[in-house]
Amino acid sequence: MKPQSWLRRNWLWAAGGAFVTIHLVTWLMQRAMKSSVRSEAALKQKPAEERLD
């Protein structure tokens, strides 16, 4: 009998790991983009506040 490959024996672990990795990377990218947008909005708001003085 031929030995099974690692992927055939552990396909559920591989699929679960890929699923979790994709969602973790997506979550990190969303946090980074949200932070970037907030800091950009704060920079745009700062000159407007300075003009009022």
Rank of each mutant, 00 (worst) to 15 (best):
A32W: 10
P47V: 01
L28I: 11
H23Y: 05
R31E: 06
E40H: 15
L52V: 13
T21C: 08
G16Q: 08
K46Q: 10
K34Q: 04
T26M: 10
E49Q: 10
R8C: 06
L28C: 05
G17W: 00
W27C: 02
A14D: 01
R38C: 04
A18D: 03
Q4G: 04
A32H: 07
A42K: 11
W27S: 08
P3A: 06
K44A: 06
G16P: 00
V20G: 00
Q45K: 12
R51P: 00
W13T: 13
G17H: 00
K34G: 11
F19Y: 10
K2N: 07
P3M: 13
M1K: 09
K2D: 12
A15L: 13
A18S: 10
A14H: 03
K44I: 07
A42V: 02
T21A: 13
S39Q: 05
R38N: 12
H23C: 11
L24P: 00
A14M: 03
Q30C: 09
A41S: 02
A18M: 12
W13G: 06
Q30E: 12
M29Q: 08
V25S: 05
M29I: 14
K44W: 13
M29P: 01
R51M: 14
M1T: 05
S36A: 10
N10H: 10
I22S: 11
E49H: 12
H23I: 14
M29K: 14
I22H: 03
F19W: 12
W13N: 11
W13P: 01
G17R: 01
I22E: 02
M29L: 15
L43I: 02
K46N: 10
S39N: 09
Q30R: 07
L7V: 07
L7Y: 08
K34W: 07
W27K: 03
L7F: 10
G17D: 00
L28V: 15
G17F: 00
K44C: 09
K46M: 15
A32R: 14
A18W: 14
S36M: 10
S36G: 04
T21E: 06
W27A: 06
K2R: 11
K34D: 13
K46P: 01
G16T: 04
M29N: 14
Q4D: 14
Q4P: 01
L52S: 05
W27I: 07
E50P: 01
P47A: 06
M29S: 12
K2G: 03
F19Q: 07
F19R: 03
S35A: 13
A18V: 11
A41D: 11
R38D: 15
L24M: 09
L12E: 06
E49S: 09
L52P: 00
E50T: 15
A48W: 14
I22N: 09
D53M: 06
W6R: 03
K2P: 07
V25F: 02
L12D: 15
M29T: 06
Q30D: 11
